[in-house]
């Protein structure tokens, strides 16, 4: 599903360049539940942004669903994001003046789905994350856990190939964290590739494969107990 070979990325800081990713090789198969671990500055967010087509890499190859990602213009990137990727952010990133339902329906709008149709689909997904009764509430009327569930529903609504979650539990307490992780596990059990970035061991432990990143290189890549059980 995601195949990365000798990926390099550096950011210019003034005249210097900050080399963030120094040759990453990573292969994630369809249906995997992978977490990327690393302290801040290890390059894990950069990796996610590149995988999520929010940023471009400098060197190396990146195949998404078998397609080589190279010289994408913004329009193509937008279409690919809409088609293959679902995002879950640490800070939820819901649009504040739209209701939960409208937020979930937004990716479908960009997909070109008719309003009535997309509201029905969006309601389905809200139901899936257990927030059907909150459909017409604005984000600021929801708790953090609820917001993240709305965000997950939004990530899933286009039936993407990969869900990318950037510290999805970073702003949540442990109980809601677990609920969110359970939700992600359910999604994974349905066959979707889930790609989580975290710096918390407990969160990573709930995934089936942990890739550890340090200073822009992969230092370990191992399956967890969860995976072994399966």
């Amino acid at each position: 599903m995601i195949k990365i070979e000798k990926l390099h990325k550096s950011y210019p800081i003034g005249k210097e360049a900050l080399h963030v990713l120094k040759g990453i090789d990573l292969h994630i198969k369809e249906g995997e539940f992978v977490s990327i671990m690393g302290s801040s500055g290890s390059g894990k967010s950069t990796l996610l942004n590149i995988v999520g087509l929010l940023d471009e890499h400098d060197k190396g190859d990146y195949f998404l669903n078998g397609q080589l990602i190279k010289n994408l213009n913004e329009k193509k990137a937008a279409i690919l994001r809409n088609k293959f990727l679902g995002f879950v952010f640490q800070s939820f990133n819901l649009i504040s003046y739209k209701t939960a339902l409208e937020n979930v329906a937004l990716p479908l709008y960009y997909k070109g789905m008719k309003r009535k149709e997309r509201l029905i689909v969006a309601m389905d997904y809200l139901d899936k994350v257990g927030l059907k009764d909150w459909a017409n509430h604005l984000p600021n009327e929801l708790s953090g856990g609820q917001k993240q569930r709305v965000a997950i529903a939004r990530a899933l609504v286009t039936k993407p190939k990969v869900v990318l979650a950037d510290e999805p539990t970073g702003a949540l307490d442990s109980t809601t964290s677990d609920a969110v992780m359970d939700l992600l596990k359910d999604i994974n059990n349905e066959g979707m590739t889930v790609f989580v970035i975290t710096h918390e061991e407990e969160i990573a432990a709930q995934t089936s494969r942990i890739v550890r990143l340090k200073d822009g290189v992969i230092i370990s890549d191992e399956l967890t107990k969860v995976a072994k059980v399966i």
Binding site: L54, A78, R81, K83, F87, N93, I95, Y110, T158
Partner: peptide
């Protein structure tokens, strides 16, 4: 930020 979110969700620059 809102525009960033929209674009992450698949909004093209044109839209």
């Amino acid at each position: 930020k809102e525009i960033g979110i929209r674009r992450a969700l698949g909004a093209t620059p044109k839209s």
